[in-house]
Design a protein around this nucleic acid. Sequence first.
DNA 1: TATTAAATAGGAATTATTATTATTTAGAAG
DNA 2: CTTCTAAATAATAATAATTCCTATTTAATA
Lengths: 131, 131
Amino acid sequence: MTNQKKLVLDFLRRDTSHPTAEAVWENVKKQLPQISRATVYRILDNFQKEGVIRVLETKPTRFDGQIEPHQHFICNNCGKIFDLKEEKVCRCLRDGSNMVSVGKVHSFNVNFYGLCQNCQTESDDNLNNKL
Amino acid sequence: MTNQKKLVLDFLRRDTSHPTAEAVWENVKKQLPQISRATVYRILDNFQKEGVIRVLETKPTRFDGQIEPHQHFICNNCGKIFDLKEEKVCRCLRDGSNMVSVGKVHSFNVNFYGLCQNCQTESDDNLNNKL
DNA sequence: TATTAAATAGGAATTATTATTATTTAGAAG
DNA sequence: CTTCTAAATAATAATAATTCCTATTTAATA
Ligand SMILES: [Mn+2]
Ligand SMILES: [Mn+2]
Ligand SMILES: [Zn+2]
Ligand SMILES: [Zn+2]
């Protein structure tokens, strides 16, 4: 854990604004002026792969130091990003109620990630061949 | 409805691969070689605003000519994007079953869009002041 | 202390997207 | 069928976001 990594992680755990990579860089620079953009991008990427931070599917990409399961409400007007507890998400999707604590939901978008059947079969085959 | 628009829309309605803007351009060029990238980007943006096509929250952005409500399964291995019927989505989120017809879901990400309470109040105020 | 591998800084390069502007085109009016 | 006008387009410049490259620094280890 280098100083650079520590500063990035500390910042993301304190900050609740779901900052962009650029914003993370700007903020960490206050404490380590010579830190490079590329370093911040690399560290964010590594943390994401380790599951230490979360990545939001926004443009530009935003980052979240809070990794307990929750989803996000993005205001169409002001652009602010609010946290939604998992429970509210399920209710909203289940019974069409579109009111949540932070506002009124107009639309939502879900991306599921996993292994498609082809790729599952392939990885099973590889495993069997090794045995 | 210009020829350019027609070709873009026809392509998106035929194609089920959820192509990028670049891929739309490459394909439409086959029939209209002088079409400009900027035109494709503008047309995609307009169609999106009119609700004629859907935009996927991917990097890079992808487009979908199918606008009946459905969600997407993105394979972590091969990157292919599969359509998921709404019903399966709800079941998956509701009772933790992570098997869907196209594969096994490892994770998912939901973005909700709407008006936050602040912005709702503001727009109510504006309405009242006009009366 | 010397060796080595990993991480970083700084900047170039690339990718994706948006902005600009001169030209073209699709209709409407005559 | 012409002329006019506004909208749409092509070509390209500019910008934004991200990734790549490489010389240098740092940390860990023998
Ligand atoms: Mn969050
Ligand atoms: Mn689809
Ligand atoms: Zn708002
Ligand atoms: Zn796959």
